[in-house]
């Protein structure tokens, strides 16, 4: 494996990893608030899952960048 391939791999890893970190931070806050809301009103469970899942798009975009890095470079 040459150094270029290694750098591509590191870049792809960073793209997913940093996006996951951001997503996790957002989900931690949303999740805590969502659990509080569900405790008060259990019928909000569906919407709570929806809200918790929204920041995951960041990781998916990170994954898209990582995949493009691997496929195109």
């Amino acid at each position: 494996m040459d150094i270029g391939t290694g750098l591509v791999a590191i870049g792809a890893g960073l793209a997913v990893g940093l996006a996951a970190l951001g997503s996790g931070l957002a989900q931690a806050r949303i999740g805590a608030a969502a659990i509080g809301a569900i405790a008060e009103k259990p019928e909000l469970t569906g919407r709570a899952i929806l809200l918790v899942a929204i920041p995951e798009t960041l990781v998916i975009l990170g994954f898209a960048v990582a995949a493009m890095t691997i496929v195109l470079l």
Binding site: V59, I60, L61, A64, A67
Partner: peptide, 12 residues
């Protein structure tokens, strides 16, 4: 467009 890209999670 972001909505469509979000389906990449199927692969991920």
């Amino acid at each position: 467009l972001g909505n469509i890209l979000s389906y990449l999670r199927l692969a991920a």
